[in-house]
Amino acid sequence: MIKKTEHVALIVTDMDRSIEYYSAMFDFEVRARGASPKREMVFLKHKNQPGFEIELIKDLVPLGSYSEKGIVNHLAFTVDNIHEAISYYRDKGITFNSEQPNTAIDGAKTIFFNGPDHELLQLVQPNRQ
């Protein structure tokens, strides 16, 4: 039986650039880094969510083409105040895919942007009723 979400894996083209991005933007830290003959892998951890990780995968031997949006549709990060978060990340250089956040079907405020390999990322301010 499922207890929790373990990790999400993202395909990247430049491992060092992706590590720097997720570290500088969102304070993730490298937990483990290694390689096999076919791929390089990194697990990123975050102090505020010890039970969840991001796995970055770089194919060292091309395995075919991936969708432009990647295998995972998007990765979402929870924020307390979406307008403060948008301002903070704009100041760090993020360009959002819309000027203002949208309202999801459950009342959450959301906004999308792209990571260094055009992976689709999202900020979410949950609707806490």
Rank of each mutant, 00 (worst) to 15 (best):
M1D: 10
M1H: 09
M1F: 11
K3F: 09
K3E: 07
K4P: 06
K4A: 14
T5S: 09
T5M: 12
E6C: 09
H7F: 11
V8S: 10
A9K: 04
A9C: 08
L10S: 06
L10E: 05
L10H: 07
V12E: 03
V12T: 05
T13Y: 10
M15I: 07
M15H: 02
D16C: 02
D16A: 08
D16E: 10
R17C: 12
S18K: 05
I19E: 01
I19W: 04
I19D: 01
I19S: 06
Y21S: 03
Y21C: 05
Y21R: 06
Y22D: 05
Y22L: 06
Y22T: 01
S23W: 06
M25H: 03
F26M: 11
E29C: 08
E29K: 10
R31N: 15
R33G: 12
A35P: 05
A35M: 14
S36L: 09
S36E: 13
P37G: 13
P37Q: 14
K38L: 15
R39K: 14
R39Y: 13
E40K: 10
E40W: 05
M41T: 14
F43K: 08
F43L: 11
K45D: 12
H46I: 08
K47T: 14
K47I: 12
K47Q: 14
Q49E: 13
P50D: 09
F52Q: 03
E53Q: 14
E53F: 03
I54F: 13
E55N: 09
L56Q: 03
I57A: 06
I57E: 09
D59E: 15
D59A: 11
D59L: 09
L60R: 12
L60Q: 12
L60D: 09
V61H: 07
P62E: 11
L63S: 15
L63E: 15
S65H: 15
Y66S: 15
Y66W: 14
Y66G: 14
E68A: 13
K69Y: 09
K69C: 08
I71V: 15
L75R: 02
L75N: 02
A76I: 02
A76C: 11
T78F: 11
V79A: 03
D80I: 02
N81E: 10
N81L: 05
N81P: 05
I82W: 00
H83T: 05
H83N: 13
E84M: 11
E84K: 08
A85K: 00
A85I: 02
I86R: 00
S87K: 10
S87F: 03
Y88V: 01
Y88I: 02
Y89W: 03
R90G: 01
R90A: 03
D91M: 11
G93Y: 03
I94V: 04
T95V: 04
T95L: 02
N97H: 12
N97W: 05
N97T: 10
N97E: 15
N97Y: 07
S98T: 13
S98L: 06
S98V: 06
Q100Y: 01
Q100E: 07
N102K: 13
N102D: 14
T103Y: 01
T103Q: 10
A104Y: 09
I105F: 14
G107Y: 02
G107M: 08
K109G: 00
K109Y: 02
K109H: 10
T110W: 00
T110K: 06
F112I: 00
F113A: 00
G115L: 00
P116M: 04
D117H: 05
D117Y: 01
L120F: 02
L123P: 00
V124S: 04
N127L: 07
R128K: 12
Q129W: 07
